[in-house]
Design a protein around this nucleic acid. Structure first.
Lengths: 189, 189
DNA sequence: GTCTATAGTCCGATAGAC
DNA sequence: GTCTATCGGACTATAGAC
């Protein structure tokens, strides 16, 4: 038997999401989150640097998955296709947590401060993808442009996926978004 | 004669930029900014909702310029070209303030919190561009994809422009970035 | 685990412009 | 009189220091 309940981090994350949904992000104090998780405010700040960060777990795992997928992609793969491979490799992570993703996104969409943080996380992932492409010998600015295009395609696909009543395949939505993006940037129209 | 020195807002903006450069964003308090501008902390918060916002004046002007340019673009112009027209219309705004833009960007680049805010402002501009395209009859998701592609091209161009020792033309850098972006998304390679 | 600085809010007061 | 810009003080919660 251990002295504390296990999984303090997970309990804080769950308590925070629940409270943000119940009464809104601004109306929730860190003290309340900690109380509901059976911990103290101080402990909250040991796990998360601030009140927003508690919603963005899984970021690190996603980053590693992207980078690893890019590292192991066939050498001949074009930059943009390499990025798509990485995005598709992460699709199961989302499919397995559809309801959680939906709830989380609803909270974020209701608060500009959380949207800021989400954008920063997305930019950090784009930077990691850019770096992984560079390591494969992709020159700048092609590396960062390919990463950014991938982010746009994913963002577009995710927005549709997360709130659809039916359950479309995220991979397919990504490919669709990318196709539309290609059509837009094609010169011959 | 009025009771107060004129342009309280401008004085606060200048004082804030100077202090953020001198000692860093985190090491600067709102009280110090207000003091240097000859005002009180309370007055600072009447003009700006928070400490970051003071760096992002001009945002509204830029938004109006983008929207107006899109509204008045020739009907036959393709979505992506309409966006480029808008971006180019705003180029003089930057060319006229190169040194200020440089200083501001250096402060932002040194602080994640400010980067968050910058990303949110950029997203807000993209949303305004998307909306302006929709009003011209551009369907979704083409409207938002075109806006996002424009944002990427501008971001890429701006990053090069703002720190070049020589003074390249921002318009040309935007067109170059867009060309590279088109090459990346082209299927035939 | 306690203590503290500071961001950010609220309500109200005041002084001049119109 | 009304409107607007500044200031004052009290207050809470975040976040970091010790």
């Amino acid at each position: 038997m251990s002295r504390w309940e296990p999984n303090a981090r997970g309990r804080l994350e769950q308590a925070a999401l629940d409270l943000y949904r119940e009464r809104g992000f601004d109306q929730t104090t860190v003290t309340e989150i900690a109380e509901r998780a059976g911990l103290t405010e101080r402990t909250f700040f040991r796990y998360f640097t601030d009140k927003r960060e508690v919603l963005f777990w899984g970021q690190e795992r996603l980053r590693e998955l992207y980078v690893r997928t890019i590292e192991t992609a066939p050498e001949s793969t074009a930059p943009i296709d390499t990025v798509v491979l990485a995005l598709e490799a992460a699709v199961p992570v989302f499919h397995e947590r559809r309801e959680l993703a939906r709830q989380r996104q609803a909270v974020i969409d209701a608060n500009p401060g959380l949207q800021e943080r989400e954008l920063l996380k997305r930019a950090a992932l784009a930077a990691a993808v850019t770096e992984a492409l560079r390591k494969r010998g992709v020159a700048d600015p092609v590396a960062s442009l390919a990463a950014d295009v991938g982010v746009i395609a994913f963002k577009t696909a995710f927005a549709r996926w997360v709130n659809s009543p039916d359950e479309p395949d995220l991979s397919q939505l990504i490919r669709e978004a990318l196709d539309q993006l290609k059509a837009i940037t094609r010169d011959d129209r």
